[in-house]
Amino acid sequence: MNLRDNINKLNESDGRKQADLIQMWKNEASSNLQSMKAEWEGQLPVDQLKGYQQYPVAEAFEKITTEPYHKVVPMWRKWAVAALFTGLLAVSGLYLYQRASANVTIVAEAAIHHHKLNDGSEVTLDKNTRLDYDGERAVAIAGRGFFKVAKKESGASFTVELNKGKVTVLGTRFSVTSLPGEVEVAVEEGRVKYEYEGRSIIINAGERMKLSEQDIVSSPILSPNQFSWSAQVLEFKNTPLDRAIQDIGRHFHQNLSLATEIKSAGKCLLTTRITSENIDQVLEELKLLFQIQYHKSGDRYVITSMKC
């Protein structure tokens, strides 16, 4: 008798018959016992538990069931509270005024600029980037910046206001691009929160988020050169040229592309280390290596031919 038949029989019969059947079956062979064990283990979806986790149930229950405390407040207390509130408002107004006066604006025009902020965080600004800093833990940026945010013991978060949306972090390393047609956040270490028009997304290390039209699209970082521009070193090791072209374009923040006729670029491999300060020098180097020809129209570079 096979195992399935046995189980079906068991399900059809009543308690006493079940016991007899099991006894009979057990006597048949010890191998049956083994397959019964395997059947039982097979029914438990333990291998599907990967990623299953424990959430803080008790805290959640407390949070939901604790009702706000209501009490009748005597009239004089209401007045006292009102007076206190007015006082606070005045003080906070003064504080805000002082904060406003601590504002700093940093502009990196011709060269990449490293800057240490008051709170210990470091920022690298790409060429043509402007950063407004409140003197504490908030900045606004137009252009491209790489941040190494210092973690505060108080848990105070650091915010970066972008052209569209806002990034909130505690302590981590990430880059942002904030331009009218381009909003991108890429995280090297830790995790950050991106918010835009009431929506929010968590971006983890090794992920980047792009705002495409009005959609928030997140994807893994595949290129090791995602942050190369801030260190000003671009490295390739047997990198297919079509990928390298993307990296070079991102590195110099230039629109660089291959003409659609070129199909073989994926087969050409590039191994080099680039520390040039502008894209023209790199294109000259590629001219020597792959005999590339390119033309420039406006701010677009297009490679029109090449040989491996």
């Binding site: 424990q54 959430y55 959640a60 939901i64 997304i201």
Partner: peptide, 28 residues
């Protein structure tokens, strides 16, 4: 209900949303 379902629901929401922070918010 809370004790029986809360954690299972959070894990279910996490699958649906692909993000932990939101999963808890949704169940809450």
């Amino acid at each position: 209900l809370f004790d029986t379902y809360y954690n299972a629901l959070c894990n279910y929401a996490c699958l649906t949303l692909g993000m932990n922070d939101d999963a808890e918010d949704v169940v809450m």
